[in-house]
Write a protein that binds this DNA or RNA. Structure first.
Length: 877
RNA sequence: GCGCGAUUGGCGCAGCGGUAGCGCGCCACCUUGACACGGUGGAGGUCACUGGUUCGAUCCCAGUAUCGCGCACCA
């Protein structure tokens, strides 16, 4: 197209308010956008036209945070840009209401407990008020619990949606999902069944990281190290000849669970012992001394006690050395009540009874007391600080418990898949690029497959039953699976084909898998959920793999990685082509802002105070991946810019700068003849080119910054220079030239700023254009090619420099800027003088200069000198 | 231990081989007919440090320091 990128709308009635203001724009425009479906996705489309966004589903039960405004705005800016470049933007939003936070919130809000064993009650009504005592809370079925969750989430979501629309997110609100709704459950279960069928999901009995508070297994990605005080206890094992073997341990309570001692194969101190047996202190259990390269000679005594299971290294040794299993800590975090059969001596059994049923803490106390009694511990325990593994939401150290769990192959035990996933990571464009190394670090450090089963009640249940044999034992090898068409199902209340409800739990009958899928196992499917995988093949094929995944860098190892895993197993592709990592909001002390620190700012207050465009300006000023201090100062600047945009637009439009928006660059070239005017358009063309390039690289902050810089020079210099001419002081042709340049520039500025400040720009747009700026095309440099051809972009800044010199003289003389200059001299090199000459008439008008001497000289800088001011004296007045 | 990022005027940040930029704050001035929710001008930095490459380094390379983050280890 040879047009000037001004869109295809004919001018509408000019209607510029006398006193434009930001106040009220949010409400006015959001309802207009909703009425006209400005941001609706058009299903009648091709894949090439679509730009699809895998928006992070916020935890609806969580609190609103300025961080939400920050990262969601950054995505929205990109979405708006893409829409203006002609993309059919697929921009849905989900709500994450699947998982522990929602479970706890629903429990406490209604005063109910979920019990999957209970049948669904269609007449259930939640208690009006939660009973005071948790023991009195009614137990309800999973189905009823999910309904309550949806009910409550609906309320929570309204608050979020209100915030997000006020903020101006151009989300297609007709396309929302919840991670616990029937559609998401269906996709989640279907994906699980597909993964199971393809061998990507499997069940295994294995040592598992276990949170004793939540009574559930947790995955590697949910672990967090915390520094905790511990103590080395120096304890002696006994050789057959009576010699002592000293070991050091931080967990003496695990002595009865000891299965071996391990030292490094090259450690000469212990080489003679390898293969021999020693007996444990207190309990007199025989264990073998083994060699393994993971044992560190310089750590502790150089020889370690292996227990089932004290830490992950124990698990490695246990597996690789094929040691016995003598697990004692149960799912409640207590030692087994029964004295284990491997402790045979009467003394040993007696001693175990002193710790049977005890918590880890009490058991340790008991063991230490006994060791002191028997003299098998040397000296006092040596206190140390050491990292201990915690569930990220838990406050007690994790234990390792053997249990039957579901896993998904994620490369943790499979080098080929690991390689494949790293390769997929390299197929994605990371913004910023360096974030990819975090992904690779994580993938390379995986130490096992992804544990997806959770021993919770609320969540997406595994769509699996097991046959019970004649003894009532479940057959885990041959699970009964539902038909895909029946999904979603709840196996706890639904019956597999060919069975009846009265066979549940009965020998020869069946049982349901009791577990639910980890919340990440569903969240990892947001691209599939959002694009209608398995439900709407047409939509899916036009939107997947998605174009963009925005998210925080703190959940690369969880959300980003798990999504990559599922796309690989289910589609054999990347889930998206671009991933944009937002930074964190830091408080002014440069700590991550969080609720617990009590430094949280309420988003709605901020929006009220500064306006949405201003808040967006703050968010969009930060690059992707950059942690950013919460700074209301930046919002003030954004507000100032938005107001300036309104006022400058009002001025330009009131001058009559309102050319037809379908005028071509060629036609414009006929009109815009003044060199200063051509100069500003030449600069505009460069700006458009650079801003577009920045956006294409996801550097929206740069696009904003250069647009802003241009805009201020436009208002401060150009607009000031041309006022006289624009009023017609130098004839119609000169006036026509400047008015066309003004209209063109204003039109472009509105488009350039539209992604950042959707309210102010669309408001101005409505004063003189039809439709919404958000559906107007993004400007292109080609749109200005003819009018800019041969123009000298340096005229404006050079004349601006001269104007600055005149202003400085007046400022230093402490007189009004309007003060008349009788005469002034401008000295500069030949080309600069030529440029000043091109704008001389405007310069004289703007500086109120009667006579200007332009002097060519061999100088580096343009200078303004010999300024003679006409100073009004009191008498003259 | 491995890896990533940051270090630029009081503060917040750009920039990136060719004589240091922006905004806030500060100082002085100006109610000029788009805007006082404004305008004009000004002061303020040996670009963390040490080497190297180069005609030339804030920018490239190597190393050091400090801060932040990720991963791993964790007897």
């Amino acid at each position: 197209m040879a047009e000037n990128t001004l869109g295809t709308d004919t001018p509408v009635t000019i209607n510029v308010p006398d006193r434009p203001a930001l106040e009220g724009l949010e409400q006015k425009l959001t309802s207009r956008w909703e009425e006209t479906k400005t941001y609706a996705f058009d299903e009648n489309t091709t894949r090439e036209q679509v730009y699809s966004i895998d928006t992070p589903p916020p935890t609806a039960s969580g609190s609103l945070h300025v961080g939400h405004m920050f990262s969601y705005t950054q995505t929205d800016v990109i979405a708006r840009y893409k829409r203006m470049t002609g993309k059919n933007v697929f921009y849905p939003l989900g709500w994450d209401d699947n998982g522990l936070p929602t479970e706890r919130r629903v429990q406490n809000y209604y005063g109910v407990l979920c019990d999957p064993a209970i049948a669904y009650d269609p007449d259930f009504k939640a208690p009006e008020k939660p009973a005071k005592n948790q023991r009195d809370w009614p137990r309800i079925s999973r189905g009823n619990f999910i309904e309550l969750c949806e009910e409550l989430a609906t309320e929570d979501e309204k608050v979020f949606e209100q915030l997000f629309t006020t903020l101006g997110l151009s989300v297609d609100w007709s396309r929302t999902y919840r991670t616990i709704d029937a559609h998401s459950r269906k996709v989640s279960q279907l994906a699980f069944l597909k993964d199971l069928e393809a061998g990507n999901a499997y069940m295994a009995e294995a040592p598992t990281m276990w949170d004793i508070t939540f009574r559930t297994a947790v995955a590697q990605a949910e672990l967090e190290d915390k520094e905790r005080e511990g103590a080395y206890h120096r304890i002696s094992f006994h050789r057959p000849d009576g010699e002592k073997v000293w070991i050091e341990t931080t967990r003496p309570e695990l002595l009865p669970a000891c299965v071996a001692l391990v030292a490094h194969p090259d450690d000469e101190r212990y080489q003679p012992l390898f293969g021999t047996k020693v007996t444990s202190p207190l309990f007199g259990v025989e264990v073998e001394v083994k060699a393994h390269p993971l044992a560190q000679p310089d750590k502790g005594a150089g020889i370690a006690m292996v227990c089932t299971f004290g830490d992950t290294t124990d698990v490695t040794w246990w597996r690789e050395l094929q040691l016995d299993t003598r697990a004692l800590i149960g799912r409640d975090g207590r030692f087994a009540k029964e004295t284990p059969e491997w402790i045979t001596s009467a003394e040993g059994r007696e001693r175990y009874e002193r710790m049977a049923g005890a918590t880890v803490f009490s058991a340790q106390k008991a063991v230490v007391e006994m060791l002191v009694e028997t003299g098998e511990m040397e000296g006092e325990p040596k206190k140390i600080m050491h990292p201990v593994k915690f569930y990220e939401k838990g406050d007690k150290p994790l234990e390792i418990v053997a249990s039957r769990q579901w896993y998904i192959r994620n490369g943790g035990r499979d080098a080929d898949r690991r390689e494949k996933l790293i390769e997929r990571g390299r197929e994605m464009n990371w913004h910023p690029a360096f974030m990819r190394s975090r992904y690779e670090n994580w993938v390379e450090g995986l130490n096992g497959d992804w544990l997806i089963s959770r021993q919770r009640f609320f969540g997406v249940p595994f769509p699996v039953w097991y046959k019970l044999d004649a003894e009532g034992e479940p057959d885990y090898e041959n699970p009964i699976l539902p038909d895909a068409a029946s999904l979603p199902i709840d196996p706890a209340s639904e019956v597999p084909a060919g069975y009846t409800e009265d066979q549940r739990g009965v020998a020869g009958g069946f049982i349901a898998d009791p577990d639910v899928l980890d919340t990440w196992a569903t969240s990892s499917l947001t691209p599939q959920i959002a694009t209608g995988w398995g439900v709407d093949d047409d939509l899916h094929s036009k939107t997947f793999p998605m174009d963009l995944r925005p998210q925080g860098h703190d959940i690369i190892r969880t959300w980003l990685f798990s999504t990559a895993v599922r796309a690989e197993t289910l589609a054999g592709s990347v889930p998206w082509h671009n991933t944009a990592l937002s930074g964190w909001i830091l408080d002014p002390d440069r700590k991550k802002m969080s609720k617990s620190k009590g430094n949280v700012v309420v988003p709605n207050d901020v929006l009220d105070k500064y306006g949405s465009d201003a808040v967006r300006y703050w968010a969009a000023s930060a690059r992707l991946g950059a942690d950013t201090a919460y700074d209301e100062g930046q919002m003030k600047i954004g507000r100032r810019l938005a107001i300036k945009l309104l006022n400058a637009s009002k001025f330009v439009l009131n001058l009559g700068a309102i050319q037809d928006s379908v005028i071509t660059s060629e036609q414009q070239a006929q009109v815009v003849t003044n060199e200063l005017d051509r100069s500003v358009l030449a600069r505009l063309a460069t700006l458009v080119e650079e801003a577009t390039r920045a956006f294409e690289n996801y550097e929206y902050a740069r696009a904003l910054q250069i647009s802003e810089t241009f805009f201020w020079s436009f208002t401060d210099d150009y607009v000031e220079l041309i006022k006289d001419r624009a009023y017609g002081a130098r004839g119609e042709e000169e006036q026509a030239s400047v008015l066309a340049a003004l209209a063109t520039t204003l039109d472009a500025m509105l488009r350039l700023f539209a992604p950042f400040m959707p309210f102010a720009t669309d408001e101005v747009w409505s004063w003189w254009r039809a439709g919404s700026v958000h559906r107007a095309p993004w400007p292109t440099a080609e749109g200005y090619s003819a009018v800019v051809n041969g123009a000298d972009a340096e005229v404006l800044p050079t004349v601006g420099l001269a104007l600055g010199g005149l202003r400085k003289s007046k400022s230093e003389a402490k007189v009004k800027q309007r003060t008349e200059v009788k005469v002034a001299t401008i000295t500069a090199d030949a080309s600069s003088i030529a440029r000043v000459r091109a704008g001389e008439a405007d310069l004289k008008a703007a500086g109120n200069v009667a006579e200007l001497n332009l002097v060519e000289g061999d100088v580096d800088e343009l200078t303004v000198s010999d300024v003679e001011l006409v100073v009004e004296t009191e008498e003259a007045k």
